[in-house]
Each structure stands twice: as structure tokens, then as C-alpha cells.
């Protein structure tokens, strides 16, 4: 499938900043089945440093602007060819041992409620392997949380989501990570693009990857009850939504900012 991405992120600061430094990870992940035809990241008024490859394979650049300004704009355009890998991430170069992803963060900590939820599933899948457990966990979370915008915030932890049973893709992902870690399966948070299936769905998306010793990383999307396929384009990952954030910024001399994001992912004819 050929996908075209247009992604504009505008920050409008309340007061002009003296300088702004941002880390930007908006580059597609290279792995088997993904072909990057063209990709460009530009930042208005900023100088951009050299790209580094992080230990987890993320690609990061630092953009810096020292011009006094109220606005910042990051524009991403690109075209890629994707194939359906059924969630299997192969041929991806990274140095990090998957065991680090058994670490919890404030957002992925589990409590007795989550632990009971996972334990029940583990009992049900007693005779099956870890991978089938993961599939049933994915479905169970899909069933458990009602997708609703505005019910959670950027830093709502999995424990709260488990109690409110409401949230967006980020919250599905956090609960899935929290549950997997409790079940002893390394899990991480993934950020990327998704070709929307209808007008109402989002083009930026978050899902998870779970690690299995005999297979490697497999990408699950608990908010769609599926594994990832050719509609998904992986960007970057982390322990949770905060560590995986594709844009982080520090503005000196200013405080509150307004965010305006315009993103489109379209299927285009063969190139």
C-alpha cells in the first residue's frame, strides 16, 4: 500500500520565547516490508542538528531557534510503501535488551485491580502459549475500555483508566503495557500514523509492541482489536506516552502554549 503523509504541528506561545529547543523523532521506522520513498522534516526558523539513532532505534534530531518568536511549526511530508506484516517487526536494528521493557513507569504501574484482570486471563489461557495470551489480552482490553475522547488526559495512568474504563488509543496502550509487564512480557509504547478507516478516526495513533523470545517484537493495537498491518506506519517508541513523545520542547522565556495539529494520511496510487 502506498501512503502519503502530511503532518503539520503548530505551537503558539502565549508570550514570545527567547529560544526554543525541540527534540523531534518524526521519522518512519525502517524494517522489513517498509519502503521509504521520500521523507522530509522541516522546522520554521530553526537550525536542525544531525540525526542520531537511539538505542531503541528511534531517529532523533534537535531543532533550535534563538529568534524571538511566538510560533513554531514542524512540517512532515513523506511517501512510503507498506505491506501487511501481521504485526511482526523484523529486520529492525536496535541495541536495547528487551528486558528493560519489564520496567514500570508512573503511567504503566499496575494495581491489584489490573493484576486480578491479568491473572484471570492467564488462568483462562493456561494451556496456551504467551502469544495467544497476548492476543486475548489485546481483545480483552478492547472490550474493557470504551473509546471516548476527553475522558482522559495526557498523563492519566493505566490504573485510573482501569477504573474509569474510558479513554483513547494512548490509554488502551498504557493498560496493555501495564498488563503485559505484570504477565512478564516486555512491552513498549509505539507512536505512528494510521490510515483512517472512516472520517472520524485519527491519523496519528498509538499502539504497543510485545516481545516474545522465540519470535521477537509483535505490534498489537488494542484500540482496534488487531495487530498492525499495511495501514500503520511506525515512528518511535518508549516506556510510555511521555518517553515515546515524538516532539518534546523547551521554550526559554515563555510558558503556556497552544497546540494545533493538522495531519492527513492518504492512500495514493502506485508510484
Amino acid at each position: 500500500m502506498f501512503l502519503k503523509i502530511n503532518h503539520k504541528t503548530k505551537y503558539k506561545y502565549e508570550r514570545p520565547f527567547l529560544s526554543l529547543t525541540q527534540s523531534i523523532k518524526l521519522f518512519p521506522t525502517k524494517y522489513r516490508g517498509i519502503k521509504i520513498l521520500n521523507w522530509d522534516v522541516s522546522v520554521k526558523n530553526a537550525t536542525i542538528g544531525k540525526k542520531i539513532i537511539e538505542s531503541n532505534g528511534d531517529q532523533t534530531v534537535i531543532a533550535h531557534t534563538s529568534k524571538i518568536n511566538k510560533n513554531s511549526e514542524i512540517v512532515v511530508t513523506g511517501e512510503v510503501e507498506t505491506t501487511n506484516n501481521n504485526g511482526i517487526i523484523s529486520g529492525y536494528k536496535e541495541n536495547l535488551n528487551p528486558l528493560v521493557y519489564l520496567r514500570e513507569t508512573d503511567l504503566t504501574k499496575s494495581d491489584s485491580g489490573i493484576k486480578r484482570f491479568v491473572s484471570k486471563l492467564l488462568v483462562k489461557n493456561k494451556k496456551k502459549n504467551k502469544l495467544s495470551f497476548a492476543h486475548s489480552l489485546n481483545s480483552a482490553i478492547y472490550e474493557y475500555i470504551k473509546y471516548s475522547t476527553g475522558a482522559s488526559e495526557i498523563s492519566t495512568p493505566a490504573i485510573d483508566i482501569f477504573n474509569s474504563k474510558k479513554g483513547v488509543c494512548q490509554d488502551f496502550a498504557h493498560l496493555m503495557i501495564s498488563s503485559s509487564i505484570y504477565a512478564g512480557i516486555p512491552a513498549r509504547y509505539v507512536v505512528g500514523y494510521l490510515l483512517p478507516s472512516d472520517k472520524n478516526s485519527q491519523a496519528t495513533h498509538a499502539w504497543v509492541e510485545l516481545f516474545f523470545e522465540d519470535i521477537g517484537w509483535i505490534a498489537f493495537d488494542p484500540s482496534n482489536n488487531s495487530c498492525t498491518n499495511e495501514r500503520y506506519l511506525r515512528i518511535c517508541s518508549g516506556f510510555d506516552s511521555i518517553s515515546a513523545a515524538p516532539i518534546k520542547g523547551v521554550a526559554i522565556g515563555s510558558s503556556d502554549e497552544e497546540l494545533d495539529v493538522k495531519v492527513s494520511v492518504q492512500q495514493i496510487p502506485q508510484q
Binding site: E54, S55, N56, N95, L96, N97, L99, V100, L102, R103
Partner: peptide, 18 residues
Amino acid sequence: PADLVYGSRAFESSMVGF
């Protein structure tokens, strides 16, 4: 043991490979 190293918060995962 691997988990003693990788499970520790003092192990800075972003330094791996550097």
C-alpha cells in the same frame, strides 16, 4: 543476572550502544 542490570533504574537505556 540480566534482570539485575536491565531491571535497575540506574541502567540508562538511552546509553546503550554508545
